[in-house]
Design a protein around this nucleic acid. Structure first.
Lengths: 205, 205
DNA sequence: GTCTATATCCAGATAGAC
DNA sequence: GTCTATCTGGATATAGAC
């Protein structure tokens, strides 16, 4: 470390605390002492407490747009790494879940949005976008491709996507709350994906 | 009103605020003024702020055990009002969702648990029990009955239950966050239930 | 049971030396 | 940029009159 990145350290410490206690319950002194400075020094980097949250939402959560696979919805041509078999799907989704669960910034941002969703209208919208609409849109596109390729039977793709990814959303939230249940959850995910494929293959016959 | 129920009014006001702002961000004065008394008077009813939360968890959330249909899991004999058709299921589940969404105590308790789930280990456990395990157990039992009756095809009942009720959980949470989307959500629920039945009927042929 | 008054503490935020 | 010192307000909680 050795300075220069103090502002970044503040953002990281703040996110860590906001994601457990929430914004209101986290004090400036707490954040400052986690970074190793006095609370007064923190005001050299941010105008006030709210500015920390604003910056977090803008930067840390904003990098979602550039990095998250769910933010892009162009399932047009690049059907290269499409999961055509249950095994592929389990591998792909399993890896994705593990990444979402263990990346500190991502998991903390997700938890913070859960905590603050009823408090703040704009955070509610962000929560819906990142952890519902975009995910649903992503899987709707993927499933449309799989239908077109004849891998899955024809049916309402949006409902199929919901049936596929919303249980997984709930299981991710369960792991956020009780991390020790991760292996149990991963087994459920495995069974769920295979059953989903089996089902929507059969019915298309 | 006219007194005598001040303690109850305090609990209700507190739950209303805890369910939006969270416990830490809600002050004693806020609760007191919502009830129409001074903050000092509140200490005649509760030893301290924590005692309000404890009582809420014990009483208001505890009445879940006696009133919620999800708390009972005996699908043994009383297969009277079993939803045998998609229409029945849509009607039954739709009514249940509307009840869960609009009953003030239930919806506030649910939101409070969402907000406090990462803060407090025992509230995390309660959240998992009430809004995950019990619901999953309830629908696993129901689905087992429907399989036995030949209404649905044979498959892993726990996974079927997850595919059935976890999307609905997510949609309820979406309505908690953005109540104006209720009708849109109810249409999704309708389509989801019919597609679920159609699917698991077909595959059993 | 409710009130006013008060004690104590800690929050967010600013001033100014180094 | 970080510090000490300080301001101001609001928090939880208690004491004691009515």
């Amino acid at each position: 470390m050795e300075r220069g990145n103090t502002k970044q350290e503040i953002l990281e410490a703040a996110l860590e605390m906001f994601s457990v206690q929430g914004f209101e319950a986290t004090s400036i002194s707490q954040i400052a002492s986690a970074v190793g400075i006095r609370k007064a020094s923190l005001y050299s980097h941010f105008e006030n407490k709210q500015a920390i949250l604003d910056e977090l939402v803008k930067e840390v959560l904003g990098q979602y747009e550039t990095h998250s696979i769910f933010a892009k919805t162009d399932w047009g041509k690049d059907n290269d790494n499409l999961p055509l078999t249950p095994d592929d799907a389990v591998k792909m989704i399993g890896g994705q879940i593990r990444y979402l669960l263990h990346d500190p910034a991502i998991s903390r941002a997700r938890k913070m949005l859960v905590i603050e969703q009823f408090q703040n209208r704009s955070l509610a919208k962000l929560q819906t976008k990142q952890n519902y609409s975009d995910v649903l849109g992503y899987f709707t596109g993927l499933i449309k491709c799989l239908i077109q390729k004849g891998v899955l039977a024809e049916d309402d793709p949006e409902i199929m996507a919901a049936q596929f990814c919303l249980p997984i959303s709930v299981w991710i939230n369960l792991c956020d709350r009780e991390p020790e249940r991760e292996t149990e959850v991963m087994e459920l995910v495995d069974k769920h994906i295979r059953q989903f494929f089996r089902l929507y293959q059969q019915s298309g016959r």
